[in-house]
């Protein structure tokens, strides 16, 4: 490799770098948060995909994983936390509840889908999704970022 020269544009390099170093935001809402912790834990270890640093502050993170039921009381807080994140920022909607209200969709206090509050890049199905599904969503998001298909 030492004799070779890699030619790329700054834009391409930035996209590649952003995709491979997504820092998730420690933001657990309900049941899915436990599976999110499992994905981060010993067996599934998603540090392998460059997302090893879970940040506790929205200002230091790129990726918000909405893991759980979004209630009407929590929705304004989610929007506020999303606004506090610095660009570029991405959202994964994890599980049936965050995507469409799930089993609680008939409830009076539940928002049917976090996409009414923040823009969502990848939806994950399941109640709760297995950690493998979340890792697949992360890989999908990474591929889309590297390919330049993400809007914001």
């Amino acid at each position: 490799m030492s004799d070779n020269i890699l030619v790329t544009t700054l834009d391409e390099a930035l996209k590649w770098g952003t995709g491979k170093s997504l820092w998730p935001f420690t933001f657990g809402l309900a049941c899915c948060a436990i599976e999110m912790m499992s994905a981060m834990g010993s067996d599934y270890d998603w540090a392998r995909f460059g997302s090893d640093v879970f940040r506790d502050s929205p200002r230091q993170s790129d990726l918000m994983i909405v893991s759980g039921t979004v209630t009407k009381k929590m929705a304004p807080r989610i929007r506020r936390l999303y606004d506090q994140m610095a660009f570029p920022k991405f959202v994964i909607s994890m599980g049936a509840c965050a995507s469409a209200g799930g089993p609680y969709v008939r409830g009076y206090s539940v928002v049917d889908g976090v996409d009414q509050v923040v823009p969502v890049d990848v939806y994950v199905y399941g109640c709760p999704p297995r950690p493998e599904a979340l890792i697949q969503a992360l890989k999908m998001l990474q591929d889309r970022i590297v390919a330049g298909k993400v809007k914001h």
Binding site: L29, M74, S109, V110
Partner: peptide, 11 residues
């Protein structure tokens, strides 16, 4: 409390 109130009893 109440940030995860999803009316489990009623449902």
């Amino acid at each position: 409390i109440g940030y995860l109130h999803r009316n489990a009893e009623k449902l």
